[in-house]
Simulated assay, not measured.
Amino acid sequence: MTLSTIYVDADACPVKPEAARVAERHGLVIVYVSNGGLRPSRDPMVRHVVVPGTADAADDWIVENAVAGDIAITADVPLAARLVEMDVHVLGPTGRPFTPETIGMAVAMRNLKQDLRESGEIKGYNPGFTARDRSDFLQALDRTVRRALKENRD
């Protein structure tokens, strides 16, 4: 049986502490991947990987290291698409799952919104992160971890 690892696209992730709590509860390694600026942890189950500040360096590192059955947390839709193709369980920070069934629409909406922002049709504001989003994320991550552990056991 292989235990899953939780990878966090950490630079702008608002749910790092919540992800750590869930990982600890289930005895999983959690890997924060960022361009820097994260406080190191003394917990041996928490790892920090600092990548160069180049575009997509964190994304590429996660893709190179994650394997099927692992879990990733990211708001980056192109990264989510790459990971879904690898059979990695992917969640957004609001608890929204990216799955083979949903990733196509997520990519299409991301591209549409980017085109609308670039043309000036819409502003580039993201909605604020709420307590409800945090709660939804915790529930979704716990469900995802249980599902991943069950799949890895079978």
Rank of each mutant, 00 (worst) to 15 (best):
G69T: 09
I73V: 12
A75I: 09
D76N: 11
V77T: 13
R82E: 03
R82C: 07
R82L: 09
L83S: 08
M86I: 07
D87F: 02
V88A: 01
V90Y: 01
L91T: 01
G92M: 01
G95V: 11
R96W: 14
R96L: 14
R96G: 07
F98V: 02
F98S: 09
P100H: 14
E101V: 08
T102H: 10
M105C: 06
M105W: 15
A106F: 10
A108D: 10
M109D: 02
M109F: 08
R110N: 03
R110V: 02
N111A: 01
L112M: 09
D115H: 03
L116N: 02
R117Y: 01
R117N: 06
E118D: 15
E118N: 15
S119M: 09
S119P: 08
G120N: 13
G120Y: 05
K123C: 03
G124F: 13
Y125N: 10
N126P: 06
P127Y: 03
G128H: 14
G128D: 08
G128R: 14
R132V: 14
R132A: 13
D133Y: 07
R134W: 12
D136R: 08
Q139S: 14
Q139A: 13
Q139F: 12
A140D: 05
A140W: 07
L141A: 03
D142N: 07
R143V: 04
T144Y: 00
T144S: 03
T144G: 00
V145F: 03
R146M: 09
R146P: 04
R147S: 03
A148M: 06
A148K: 08
L149Y: 05
K150C: 02
K150R: 12
